[in-house]
């Protein structure tokens, strides 16, 4: 329990740092942040609304620390300001519209990539020099060194454009209405999600697989593996309960960084596939100079990543009695 409490406090600190970064970044840039941030709102909103929007980001006529507290106050209330590119929809609403797409894509892809990576890594180490170790492992690690967006482009080009096996881009067939009760819509979501998902899984797989293989190799040299084999346990039990369960622990500890890469990769894949998630929205917000939306998305992504990390910590505690 103490471990989890400590981790939780740490994530609070990390969230706080992200929030603070969001506050100071515009103020560190050259030029007048207020001007840069709100010039496009001038004329579209009445001046009083612009004033209150400024206040949301702490741009009040006061010393910096008071600006900071004003900003925090609005944030606590869940007020992320108003999106420019989707004017006059609040940022929080825009985000909640795109968050589910990303969570679905990244969530399912991460679970797949992580579990397939762990399984293949285990097999590669268990059967050294055999098929998985000598063929799949090198391919996966080569793919991991490739730029995500390029693999996405090639997949889109070859599998969707040339072969026509998958739909070209977007989260669903745009002629359909967003309605989860409609079976045509659901199957179109699945159909459109397949290729982006596949791309994320393929690019994320290699790192986890290689990490697991190397951990397994180190664990397999331990005395308790030899003892387990000498005990006459089945190979399956030795491989899974004695070796893999110990070898998986470092992968969970390193989950934070790997997840960061997967999220980054997924955002890029979304952009290539015009998939209506956070990555696509983030890029649009940057290109449209929609600073409130940009900041809001960064915050949401960060909070989701922290939550996912905490989840990994909980699993770690379940698997390793030493952390309890």
């Amino acid at each position: 329990m103490r471990f989890l409490v400590r981790r939780f406090l740490f994530y609070l600190v990390a969230a706080y740092v992200a929030i603070t970064l969001n506050f100071f970044l515009p103020r560190l840039m050259v030029g007048d942040p207020v001007q840069v941030m709100f010039s496009k709102f001038q004329g579209r909103m009445d001046p009083r609304a612009v004033e209150s929007l400024k206040e949301t980001f702490g741009f009040v006529d006061a010393p910096v620390h008071e600006q900071y507290f004003t900003y925090l106050k609005h944030l606590v209330k869940g007020d992320l300001g108003i999106s420019l590119t989707n004017f006059p929809v609040p940022v929080s609403e825009v985000i909640s519209g795109s968050l589910e797409w990303t969570l679905r894509l990244v969530g399912i892809a991460t679970i797949f990539a992580f579990s397939i990576g762990m399984i293949l890594g285990t097999i590669a180490a268990w059967r050294r020099g055999k098929f998985v170790d000598t063929l799949i492992l090198p391919i996966a690690s080569i793919l991991a060194a490739f730029p995500y967006f390029w693999i996405a482009m090639l997949a889109l080009y070859y599998l969707a454009h040339i072969q026509g096996w998958f739909p070209i881009g977007h989260g669903y067939n745009l002629r359909l209405k967003e309605d989860w009760g409609d079976r045509a819509y659901v199957s179109s979501v699945i159909e459109h999600g397949m290729l982006p998902m596949l791309t994320v899984v393929i690019t994320a797989l290699g790192g986890w697989m290689l990490g697991m293989r190397n951990n397994m190799i180190n664990v397999l040299a331990e005395d308790y593996i030899t003892l387990a084999q000498a005990k006459g346990l089945s190979d399956r039990r030795v491989m899974l309960v004695y070796a893999a369960r110990n070898a998986i622990l470092p992968s969970l500890t390193g989950f934070a960084m790997s997840l960061g890469f997967v999220i980054g990769g997924a955002l890029i894949v979304e952009i290539v596939f015009a998939y209506p998630g956070m990555g696509f929205t983030l890029l649009n917000s940057v290109n449209g100079r929609d600073y409130p939306l940009m900041q809001g998305i960064f915050l949401m992504i960060t909070l989701s990543v922290l939550a996912a990390n905490f989840f990994a910590d909980v699993i770690y505690v379940l698997l390793d009695p030493r952390a309890r």
């Binding site: 005395d223 308790y224 003892l227 000498a230 004695y242 030493r322």
Partner: peptide
């Protein structure tokens, strides 16, 4: 049966 040198390493930690 066999008993190994270092019991710390001979037991599965999890």
């Amino acid at each position: 049966a066999i008993v190994f040198q270092s019991a710390m390493n001979a037991l599965n930690p999890v």
